[in-house]
Amino acid sequence: MFEIVRIENFSPSTFLWEVRAPEIAHAARPGQFVIVRCDEKAERIPLTIADFDVVSGTVTVVIQAAGKSTFDMKAYKALDQISDVAGPLGEPSEIENFGTVVLVGGGLGVAPVFPILRALKLKGCRTISIIGFRSKSLVFWEGRFREYSDETIIVTDDGTYGEKGLVTQPLKQIITEREINRVIAIGPLVMMKAAAEVTRPAGVRTIVSVNPIMVDGTGMCGSCRVSLGGEVKFACIDGPDMDGHLVNFDELLIRQKRFSKYEKKSLELYEKKCQKK
């Protein structure tokens, strides 16, 4: 069993869990993820490691309630126990002094960008962060980003905070005006796809973190297959970091809907249950 030591609510739908898992904290590197299974009947849910602390022996994940399983997770309280946390899984992000790096985080993707940003900064990179949210009320971790970024740009869809617009707009501007050595973009698939298109003409190496549907997370089932430059890769063991210019995003977008019929069904049941309560 694993204890949730701390919960922080960022908005009605996004929240943070800090979970005691000393061995995972010890081994974790930026870019890796864990698979959480809350109880005997629950699904195995992949979640990117948003922070890890060897001293306190904890790993942090930031969760967006997207469907039944993640809604269920909202009901947990600090000091509750969950059955399983497996990890760290996946290949760590490449961390080197690349020169100037732009880190792009969209919505919930802001959280998994953070440990990469911190590690790159500590390696000596010049870091420019662009983080985007739908609205002011959803903004989180601004302070943490400012601490490790040479420049921080915040955008919101509705313009209630920072610049109005999408993360791709400042990204485009920076790419055209300055010499950038690498871009790291994490967020919804459409955002990562758009970011990769922005950087493609300039040929700036762009790393995205793909999130296909997973089961085991150990290379055993092939559920997480992604077409990368025409080759089949498994996101759980070859990724989740991948070359954004080679990922077949259109295929991935379709594959994310593999279980939509069932997801809807279980969400409906969940809502019914909530109404009864």
Binding site: K41, R44, K68, S69, V215, S223, F259, Y262, K265
Partner: peptide, 25 residues
């Protein structure tokens, strides 16, 4: 893959979805 299908049913109890959280699809 057969591995994915069998894992969803055998390990994750997918036949008992939605009582168990994992669908078979």
């Amino acid at each position: 893959s057969a591995n994915e299908f069998l894992t969803r049913v055998t390990l994750m109890h997918g036949a008992d979805f939605p009582k168990y959280g994992t669908p078979v699809g």
